[in-house]
Simulated assay, not measured.
Amino acid sequence: MENTFDKTAIETIELLQARLRRIEYAVCGQVDESALSSNKQSATQRLTALEHSLHQLASKSRVVQDLLRLHSRHPDLFQSLSANDLPTTLDTESILSIIMASASAYPSTASRLTSILDVPIPPAELSAQLIDLQPRIAKVEALQAVQNADIAELRERSAAVIQRWYTVDILRAGENWAELEGRVEQVEQKVRRAALARRLDDDMV
């Protein structure tokens, strides 16, 4: 009986290890062989190693973290249901009304899915060429970013030059013209006074 129990425990641990390796390969694209527990370890040690590997995988992958958080909040989503069990608490009439309300969308959805299947897949050579062009595209994007920064700096400098030209040349020239007009007006007033005084003197004579 004890041998049967040990055999079942070992097989269960090996299945858990295989599942963990598949998950790690699906998430990371590779499997860390050094993190796998040895068959010479006890069942408790192997379970501890599996739990440690799972925690490491969760710390490295945002997807695993989201799945664990979703499982802790909604564990019912991860339970398999039979075809006879409905995953809802609604009655049959409510379910039928929901289905009939969305019945018009089924044909359009089916046609869209069919059109997606009809879309030809691009050849692998074209995808490989696009992948090879990625470094050049990155360099062009970096060059464009530098050029955009230079253009922004030139715009700022141009705006500063225009502001200085308007302040120094236009406004100061206007002030000078206003001052000159004022002086001319004063001279004209003096000339008119002198002419008036001369005319009065001539009349008195």
Results as ranks from 00 to 15, higher is better:
I99T: 04
V64I: 15
D85A: 06
T88A: 07
L77P: 00
Q65P: 04
Q79T: 09
L96A: 13
L68D: 08
A58I: 01
I98G: 03
L81P: 00
S94G: 02
S82T: 03
L81V: 00
L77G: 04
H74Y: 07
L57A: 07
L81R: 15
F78Y: 13
Q79P: 00
P75G: 04
D66R: 13
S72W: 07
E93W: 01
S59V: 05
I95E: 13
S59A: 15
N84V: 01
T88N: 09
E93A: 13
V63A: 10
R73F: 04
L70E: 14
D76V: 01
T88F: 01
R73C: 07
L70D: 14
P75K: 05
S94M: 11
L57Q: 06
L70K: 13
T88Y: 01
S61K: 12
S72N: 14
S59M: 14
M100C: 06
L81M: 10
L70P: 00
S80L: 12
L90C: 08
T89E: 14
H74Q: 10
N84I: 00
Q65E: 15
S72E: 15
V64Y: 03
R62D: 15
R73K: 12
R69F: 02
K60H: 10
T88V: 02
L68H: 04
L96F: 08
R69Q: 14
L70R: 14
S61N: 11
I98A: 10
F78Q: 05
H71P: 01
I99D: 09
T88H: 08
L90T: 00
I98D: 08
S59Q: 15
D85R: 08
S94K: 14
L57H: 04
S94Q: 15
L90F: 06
L57E: 03
H71N: 06
I99R: 10
R73V: 04
T89I: 07
T89V: 07
M100I: 02
T88C: 10
R69L: 12
Q79K: 09
S61Y: 10
S82I: 00
L77Y: 08
S59L: 14
D91A: 02
A83E: 09
D91I: 00
K60V: 05
D85S: 04
